[in-house]
Design a protein around this nucleic acid. Structure first.
Lengths: 151, 151
DNA sequence: TCGAGATGGTTGCAAGTGTAACCGTCGATT
DNA sequence: AATCGACGGTTACACTTGCAACCATCTCGA
């Protein structure tokens, strides 16, 4: 059977496989200590590093659908890691911020992430991660251009 | 708040974001023509390029959980794109192969994928995709080593 | 030859997800 | 001030997923 196409060198497949693998690998590091889903962890990270944000801002910052954000925020709130503060001027929006417990969790998990990446960097050699991320940025740019052009 | 950690340069996050984006982008190309999920498309691709395989082999080849494979295979079978052939020597396993219709679908979609990647390559410049994939391979190797060492 | 475990594959269930529809609020136009 | 569309955020529903439990079959050793 003639085969003009090899799955192994098809970029969407390769990206997905690598992403799944690394997600699984890193989640092993924190799933046990913190019982937390990936969207929750992303929202926590966004709030922890930027400070106060609205739900929509979290969504654009960390690239999540608004329903995902909504649920992650609700979960973090229930865990008392996050507090909603209403906006006087516009009562639709809510400013979200981490509680003291939330900030503590953020620092712990950020530390974990930092260590994780440092280990990986050591295994891969200096600059390897930066080069990969630069490549990913190029891909994202190309894809976003593409989708712009078609509307 | 001191911030030793930036989500934007955290590799698991970056890989996931890029993978989601490119998956979405490519799925737009085929979701309409073929009504097919990603696991089905992976199984089809594996069978189309390798030939006959068992479900377990598909799983290892294209990195899918066995339940995912099982469901994808069932769906492809129902669509008459795939046929099961039993093994005389070991009646647990089933050899799977594409029907004529399945092979036709595979060729069409492989063509689509080929075109997609060619367009992307043109946008990114020659060799860019190869470099990214080489980086991904390094990451995967490092992660698999890591998980080996811990068992 | 009779278990005990391993293996290929399927299924029930609970959890996560996207889509669309929705509620409340805002801003602009009238 | 009444209305209309846009926007922030939530929820109902259908679908996908992973885990664990399962069935059937095979293999190995007593």
């Amino acid at each position: 059977m003639p085969d003009a196409f090899d799955l192994e060198s098809f970029l969407p497949y390769r990206l997905n496989r690598a992403a799944e693998l690394i997600s699984l690998s890193f989640s092993r590091e924190y799933k046990q200590r913190f019982q937390m889903t990936r969207p929750e962890w992303r929202a926590l990270a966004a709030l922890g590093s930027v400070g106060s944000m609205t739900a929509t801002e979290i969504g654009t910052h960390s690239n999540m659908h608004k329903t995902k954000v909504s649920r992650a925020v609700a979960a973090l709130e229930q865990r008392r890691w996050l507090r909603r503060r209403e906006n006087e001027a516009d009562r639709r929006v809510e400013h979200l911020e981490l509680t003291a417990a939330g900030q503590k969790a953020y620092r712990e998990i950020a530390d974990l992430a930092h260590t994780y990446q440092a280990t990986l960097e050591k295994a891969l050699g200096t600059g390897a991660i930066e080069r990969i991320e630069a490549g990913l940025a190029d891909v994202e740019r190309a894809l976003l251009d593409r989708s712009h052009r078609r509307g």
